[in-house]
């Protein structure tokens, strides 16, 4: 792998083997009113890891992603650290740290009133203060990488779902995030467009991007995933490698879940 990371300002968090920890969740709980969506989540994700999150609908996968870039707050007493730094409360510091965590949504969420190119340059220009010309040059490079450079001047509504989702990935990459979160990036796509998006994600994984991916795409999980987290009712019930999970699931709920998705 050729990707180089600049030396961090703070001494990076690292596990016992010396690998840098990019995402760390400690005693994370999340309530919506009286309903508990996340229960005692403790999790570390080292640099370059691709973690696949699986679980039935309503098990808290989206909530988990959303707490990591703090689109949702967590209950007091828990901590989330990004590259060793605790997520701050609202404000400038939060905005800056959020830029380190990219997010790709199930429904793309491209800015409907901006062109494809503007979608990708908005963050670098407004958050990082990159000059417009430079931002556009970088953006074109990224659009090239995800294969939609031809569409740079079009509006989002003029693109297919698969193209839109690839633009959304380019938009997230433009901020040079340390971690990318994907929340079911292919579930809203027509089947013939799923693969083009997965191909881009596989490529990213190969290049060493640290990723948390909520997906039910077994092929992708096996090919690109380093780790599987199986969630149910707000808890992480299994935490293992993809091969073991798909061939020898331990928890009855996991077996049940696999049975359902493999047979349909």
């Amino acid at each position: 792998m050729t990707q180089t990371t600049p030396p961090p300002a703070d001494p990076p968090a690292a596990d016992s083997t010396g690998t840098r920890i990019l995402v760390e969740l400690e005693n994370v709980n999340k309530h919506f009113g009286s309903f508990q969506a996340l229960t005692d989540i403790n999790l570390t994700i080292p640099e370059r890891q691709v973690a696949i999150v699986l679980g039935p609908s309503g098990s808290g996968k989206s909530t988990l992603c959303r707490t990591i870039n703090r689109l949702e707050t967590i209950d007091p007493g828990g901590t989330i650290r990004i590259d060793g730094k605790p997520l701050p409360d609202e404000g400038k510091a939060l905005a800056r740290l959020r830029a380190d965590v990219g997010m790709v949504f199930q429904s793309f969420n491209l800015f409907a009133h901006k062109s494809i190119l503007e979608n990708v340059t908005l963050g670098p220009i407004k958050v990082k203060g990159v000059k417009k010309a430079q931002a556009e040059k970088d953006a074109m490079g990224l659009l090239e990488r995800v294969g939609v450079a031809q569409q740079a001047r079009k509006m989002p509504a003029q693109l297919s779902g698969g193209q839109q989702q690839r633009v959304a990935i380019a938009r997230a990459l433009a901020m040079k995030p340390k971690v990318l979160l994907f929340d079911e990036p292919t579930s809203a796509l027509d089947p013939e467009m799923v693969q083009e998006v997965l191909d881009v994600m596989v490529q990213l994984a190969r290049e060493g991007m640290t990723m948390v991916v909520v997906t039910h795409e077994m092929g992708f999980a096996r090919k690109a995933g380093d780790r599987v987290l199986f969630m149910d009712e707000g808890k992480v019930l299994e935490d293992t490698d993809p091969e073991s999970f798909f061939t020898r699931p331990q928890h009855p709920r996991a077996k049940d879940f696999l049975g359902k998705i493999l047979t349909h």
Partner: peptide, 23 residues
């Protein structure tokens, strides 16, 4: 306006005010 627009903007690191204004 789809709340996803605000979320996407904030996840890029734009603050609430900027997200309102730009997106």
């Amino acid at each position: 306006v789809d709340p996803g627009q605000m979320e996407a903007s904030r996840s890029l690191g734009l603050g609430y005010g900027k997200s309102m204004q730009r997106v």
